[in-house]
Design a protein around this nucleic acid. Structure first.
Length: 423
RNA sequence: GGAGAGGUGGCUGAGCGGUUUAAAGCGGUGGAUUGCUAAUCCAUUGUACUCCGUUUAGGGGUACCGGGGGUUCAAAUCCCCCCCUCUCCGCCA
C-alpha cells in the first residue's frame, strides 16, 4: 500500500508511477476524493463525540448529587443517533478509500526501466556460454521419462495436468537440491531456516499483496477460508504481520515450501512438462531491513540466488524488469534466467524484488528507528531458487548422448556420491 | 467435536456501568546523589487517525482493554457472535 500522505502531496508523481505500471492513473483521483470526504466527515463526527463525552461526564456528576438529568439524556439520545449515522458514513467512505488503495500497485523505483511489457526488460548481465552439443539435445520431458524419474501420465490421472510426479532418483534430486540450497543460505548467507504453514488466511494474502488482485490465480479452501500459498514469500513475510519488530535488523529468513498456482490466465502455455505447473517446490529468501540500505540488500539478495546457480555450473542472465512487467507490489525486480537447450529458450528461475515499505504498510510490519519511533520496514524477497526449472536446466544442459545426465559436482554429496543419472 | 477457565499497556497484574485521565509493581528514558558495581530519590512513559499551528517546537480532539456487533446519556465493565490460549474428555498421523 502506498502512503496516503505521498498521494496527497505528490499526486502527479503517483499518477506517473501508476501509468508506468500499466494502471489507469484515475485511481489517484478516486483516492483523493474519498480521502477528502473522509477527513471532513471524521472531523464532524469527532466534534460530536467530544461533546457527548463531556456531557456524559456531567450527567454522571449530576446523578451523584441527586439532580434530575432526564432532559439532557433525551437530548443526548438524539446526538447519539447523529453520531451513529455519521460513523456509518465515515465507515463507508473509509471502506471505499481502502479498497481503492489496495488496488494501487507499488511505484517503480527510479532505476526500474520504464516500459509496458517484457520487451522493455533490460539484460543487465549474461554469464557463461550457452552449451553446445554434438548431437541433437532433447527436452527434459523425454530425458526424464527415459530415465524413469518423472511420471506425467500417472500424476495427471491422479490429479490433473500441471501436477508432475517425480520418481526414484528424480525425487531424490529434488530433495537434494532443496537441501543444497537451504544449506547454502543458512550456512553461507546468514539466513535462518523457516518451515512455515502451507495454508494462510486472507489477511496474510492482503499483507503481501496477492489479494485482492491475484485471487483467481490461487487455490482456495473455501470451507475453512484459507489459501494454498503461491510462494513462501507469503507465510514468511507475514511472520511479523502487525508487529513492531524489536529484534536487531536485518532479518534474513529462508524457507522451502511447495507453491500452488492456478495459472488461470495461462491456459495452453507451456502446458507440457515442468516449465509451468500448478504445484512446484521452491526455496525462498526473505529479508526485513531498514529503509536506508534496502537497495544494497537487493543486490546481495540477488547474489545469494546467483551463488546457487554458479555452484551448479549453469549459465545465466540477469534481467532488470521494466515497470510494466514487475509485480504489483515490487518497486524493483531482477529476474534470473537459465538457458535450456531442449527448450531453446531462457527459463526464469528466480525473481528478486525490493518492495520497499509497500508490503510493510499493508501488513503493518514496523521497526523502531534511532529515536524509538515505529516506522515501516522494507521487505525484500527472492527465489533461491525455483526447483522444477532448475531441474529442467540441469537435465537439458547436462544430458549425454546416451540419455544419461551428469550431476553438478555440488550435488554429489547430497546424492550419496551418485555422479550421473542413468536408465 | 464436548465441558470448564481465561485473553487488560513492553511485561506482571488490579478494575467488572460514571472521580480510571486504565491502580500498583517491573522494565525503559531523562535527571539528582554517590570511589566503582549497586542502591536511593525525582520526573517521564503506548499506537493510529484527525484538527489547529509551524522553519522547528507544540497544542487540542477521536479511537484502541483478543476481534466484530448490540444495549446505554455513558462500556475494559452488561448482552450476542467469532478467534485464540490453557485444563479435562472424545477423535487422530
Amino acid at each position: 500500500m502506498l502512503d496516503i500522505k505521498k498521494i496527497r502531496e505528490d499526486a502527479d508523481g503517483v499518477r506517473k508511477g501508476m501509468t508506468a505500471k500499466g494502471v489507469d492513473a484515475e485511481v489517484v483521483d478516486v483516492v483523493l476524493k474519498h480521502d477528502g470526504a473522509r477527513r471532513s466527515k471524521l472531523f464532524e463526527v469527532e466534534e460530536l463525540k467530544a461533546k457527548r463525552n463531556a456531557v456524559s461526564k456531567e450527567i454522571g456528576a449530576k446523578k451523584k448529587s441527586g439532580e434530575d438529568t432526564s432532559d439532557i439524556q433525551a437530548e443526548m439520545r438524539n446526538l447519539g443517533e447523529c453520531i451513529s449515522s455519521l460513523d456509518q458514513e465515515v465507515e463507508d467512505i473509509s471502506g471505499k478509500l481502502h479498497e481503492a488503495m489496495l488496488t494501487m500497485p507499488n511505484l517503480p523505483h527510479e532505476t526500474t526501466p520504464v516500459g509496458n511489457d517484457e520487451s522493455a526488460n533490460k539484460v543487465v548481465k549474461e554469464v557463461g556460454e550457452k552449451k553446445t552439443f554434438d548431437f541433437e539435445p532433447k527436452g527434459h520431458i523425454e530425458i526424464g521419462e527415459k530415465l524413469g524419474i518423472i511420471d506425467f501420465p500417472r500424476a495427471t490421472r491422479m490429479t490433473g495436468a500441471g501436477f508432475p510426479m517425480l520418481v526414484g532418483q528424480g525425487a531424490r534430486l529434488e530433495r537434494a537440491l532443496i537441501a543444497f540450497m537451504l544449506d547454502m543460505h543458512t550456512k553461507e548467507h546468514g539466513y535462518t531456516e523457516i518451515a512455515p504453514p502451507f495454508l494462510v488466511n486472507s489477511e496474510s494474502m492482503i499483507g503481501t499483496g496477492q489479494l485482492p488482485k491475484m485471487a483467481e490465480d490461487m487455490y482456495k479452501i473455501t470451507e475453512d477460508d484459507l489459501w494454498l500459498v503461491p510462494t513462501a514469500e507469503v507465510p514468511v513475510t507475514n511472520i511479523y504481520r502487525e508487529e513492531i519488530i524489536e529484534q536487531e535488523l536485518p532479518i534474513y529468513l529462508t524457507a522451502y515450501t511447495p507453491c500452488w498456482r492456478r495459472e488461470a490466465g495461462a491456459a495452453g502455455k507451456d502446458t507440457r512438462g515442468m516449465i509451468r505447473v500448478h504445484q512446484f517446490d521452491k526455496v525462498e529468501m526473505v529479508k526485513f531491513v531498514k529503509p536506508e540500505g534496502s537497495y544494497d540488500e537487493l543486490e546481495s539478495l540477488l547474489q545469494n540466488a546467483l551463488d546457487v546457480i554458479e555452484r551448479l555450473d549453469l549459465n545465466y542472465r540477469i534481467l532488470s524488469l521494466c515497470s510494466g512487467d514487475i509485480s504489483f507490489a515490487a518497486a524493483k525486480c531482477y529476474d534470473i534466467e537459465l538457458w535450456a537447450p531442449g527448450q531453446d529458450d531462457w527459463l526464469e528461475v528466480s525473481s528478486c524484488s525490493n518492495f520497499e515499505d509497500f508490503q510493510a504498510r499493508r501488513a503493518k510490519i514496523r521497526y523502531r528507528d534511532a529515536n524509538g519511533k515505529p516506522q515501516f520496514i522494507h521487505t525484500l524477497n527472492g527465489s533461491g531458487v525455483a526447483l522444477p526449472r532448475i531441474m529442467v536446466a540441469i537435465l537439458e544442459n547436462n544430458q549425454q548422448e546416451d540419455g544419461s545426465v551428469i550431476l553438478p559436482e555440488a550435488l554429489v554429496p547430497y546424492m550419496d556420491g551418485l555422479i550421473k543419472l542413468t536408465c
